[in-house]
Design a protein around this nucleic acid. Sequence first.
DNA 1: GTCTATAAAAGGATAGAC
DNA 2: GTCTATCCTTTTATAGAC
Lengths: 214, 214
Amino acid sequence: MNQRTFNTKPADDLTPASAAKRDAIIKAAARVFMASGYGAASMDQIASEAGVSKQTVYSHFGAKDALFEAIIHGKCQALTGRDGVTSNRTEDPEIVLFDTASSFLRMVLAPESITLYRTILAVCVRFPELASAFYRSGPRKACDRLAVYLESIHGQSELDFSNATASAELFFAMLRGDLYTRCLLALHDNTDEDEVTQHARDIVQAFLRQHRHI
Amino acid sequence: MNQRTFNTKPADDLTPASAAKRDAIIKAAARVFMASGYGAASMDQIASEAGVSKQTVYSHFGAKDALFEAIIHGKCQALTGRDGVTSNRTEDPEIVLFDTASSFLRMVLAPESITLYRTILAVCVRFPELASAFYRSGPRKACDRLAVYLESIHGQSELDFSNATASAELFFAMLRGDLYTRCLLALHDNTDEDEVTQHARDIVQAFLRQHRHI
DNA sequence: GTCTATAAAAGGATAGAC
DNA sequence: GTCTATCCTTTTATAGAC
């Protein structure tokens, strides 16, 4: 570990050539870390794929763990930025929930998301901050956004969302289901798009039935 | 990888001293692999903790990956053997489901189960058979057992389990919920026993309400 | 900042004696 | 089968020249 602080984003006080190299290092490191995990990734391979010398990598990031943290943090922030989990319109809740379910499943079942999650799980004890950052910018964020929506429609159509956060957590847990476990374990060669859509439809129905008090 | 086949269980055609060493190797390897994962675990450390020489480890298991596979397969078989997921009595379904939920959560949230799952996820691409074996002896087994029970009570108390397997998968997915994600990510220092019990109670209620057609 | 060369250490696997 | 000693490769990190 190095005592200096290294920026994740290309700094403006670098020469264009240096910033370009820094960018190449980040891209290469992301590829290598995602492909091999933290332990099996080598600084040699990262430098090679970035087209720079190993010493340049160390000049920019100081140590392997600092580079790894920068990459993972970047990936987590990219996660947060993505598609809104709820299309917050005054539409039929069933439609809004189905859209939410579809985009959520597409996101979490994407190979890059699966790989990122596996990579973090493999090192979450050694890098607790990374695990926390992932949770906040991923699962937690999705739940919070959905909870806000559920609260906004509480009472409509005889729907009871008096505990919106718990309901949101349940919604995503149901969505993941057994399918997510199988994908995490790499038991599928390809994820069937129709199966996913049908699954989202079923879960939305079950979720609505569950929260419709009679 | 070695071309020979190595037994997982202590063979009877070994001298007692040899069988004891084999057992020590298995115990030490389990500890080291679970503590460090496949990549970071070293054959030196395993030999050292087992109190034998490294060559003895190689004599028994041939290669690092073969030893790893033997350890993981052993852990998976131990998983299967454990507590019945359903207490298949002619009791109130609510009680049976609550018992099932409680023992399931206790099992999957146990630190050893979490560690095993993380270890397998980290190598599931390189060892597809291990991932498959884990899935069959863990999540799949639990679902199948519960599905059998659900089918047996289909129609009772106005409960609809016409798709028992899907219902069983949903039940366990709901049970895992956000709590399981947080535990996987090592975000908890200790799992609150009362929180788990209350969670199981809530999920059973939601599950029953969901399958009670009106 | 960047590169080449190198230090220093760790790990998987094997040879040879008993 | 078991042990000691060793080979060979890979890896993190740094030194020194430009």
